[in-house]
């Protein structure tokens, strides 16, 4: 069994049109498959979390991170991508 390499993408900021579409597009262009999406909006504050599969990327992790950062600056939201091991280490024995 090959271990799937996963990451968590979080997007936080004020809600506006097309955030999910644009984030998904960057991921698609990087060869990243989205496994799970969760999204909440409280008082216009947008909070999205995606779990993505990094096993067949077409670019490096750093490049993907740069593209997401750039998109975050354009759209005015904070976008982060972190490898999932940190969450697993902290919450699973």
């Amino acid at each position: 069994m090959t271990a799937i390499s996963k990451a968590v993408v979080t997007v936080i900021g004020f809600d506006r049109k097309g955030i999910i579409a644009r984030v998904s597009n960057v991921l698609y262009e990087g060869g990243i498959n989205i496994l799970e999406i969760s999204q909440t909006i409280v008082d216009g504050f947008f909070n999205m979390l995606m779990i993505v599969d990094l096993s067949e990327p077409t670019c490096s992790f750093d490049e993907l991170q740069d593209r997401l950062n750039q998109l975050g600056t354009e759209v005015g939201v904070q976008i982060r991508i972190q490898k999932s091991e940190i969450f697993e280490a902290m919450h699973q024995i």
């Binding site: 979390l49 969450f87 699973q92």
Partner: peptide, 12 residues
Amino acid sequence: MVQIDQIFQTLH
């Protein structure tokens, strides 16, 4: 995989 609330807990 971990729960969503656990992910937010870590981020917090």
